[in-house]
Write a protein that binds this DNA or RNA. Structure first.
Length: 194
DNA sequence: AATTTGCCCAACCGCAGACTC
DNA sequence: GGAGTCTGCGGTTGGGCAAAT
């Protein structure tokens, strides 16, 4: 396929796509080490890999970033994901922020491949006796969940008990899982009260 | 052994909000 | 204040692999 010319009449540089190679990873890590993980367009340019900024950012956040845990989501983590999803809906980045070393992409994938099925299965078997199941049903259906679901909670003031800001989800000062579990238990009793 | 099916996960896409000039 | 650009997010896709047929 011919490369479309840009406004200057020169052919557009072909953007590299697809899986990252170890050489590309190394180069990206080197550039980020020097310039930091920001100004992604500039980072992408400095790597000389013909990758777009978005692609570099994603690769860094989901794979190259230090302290990333991969695979083997523990029972405790799974429980936490379920509870947080119940509270926040498809706000994967916020959920990931409460699970040190986990990425939003990983949690989203884990939810879509494991937990959503688990919940469906449970509902099918055991009816919908708990509010958890009810809430999951509300929040498991593609476009209707996510921002909308969490936004509704916010509108109801339900997430105001804890300040889920972007800053504290960066992993600098991750809350431990026990603390979060305790908070979620509190939140569940509060939901019962409603 | 070859083919089909289903699952997992990395990566891309489109959008919205934040930021900069 | 408005236009253009950048960043971050959630949804979706497609390749690779293993299990099933």
């Amino acid at each position: 396929m011919p490369v479309a010319p840009n406004s200057s009449g020169l052919p557009k540089r072909k953007v590299n796509r697809g899986a990252w190679t170890t050489q590309e990873d190394r180069k990206l890590a080197q550039v980020i080490e020097v310039h930091g993980p920001r100004r992604w367009k500039a980072v992408a340019a400095k790597t000389g890999l013909n990758r777009c900024g978005k692609s570099c950012r994603l690769r860094w956040l989901n794979y190259l970033r230090p302290n990333i845990k991969r695979g083997d989501i523990s029972v405790q983590e799974e429980d936490l994901i379920l509870r947080l999803h119940k509270l926040l809906g498809n706000r994967w980045s916020l959920i990931a922020g409460r699970l040190p070393g986990r990425t939003d992409n990983e949690i989203k994938n884990y939810w879509n491949s494991h937990l959503s099925k688990k919940i469906k299965h449970k509902q099918h078997r055991g009816g919908r006796s708990t509010h958890m199941q009810q809430d999951s049903a509300l929040c498991t259906d593609g476009a209707t969940m996510g921002r909308g679901c969490a936004a509704q909670r916010e509108a109801n003031g339900m997430t105001n008990c804890v300040n889920f800001t972007q800053d504290d989800s960066t992993g600098k000062d991750p809350m431990n899982l026990e603390w979060m579990s305790r908070f979620l238990e509190m939140d569940e009793s509060w939901l019962d009260f409603l």
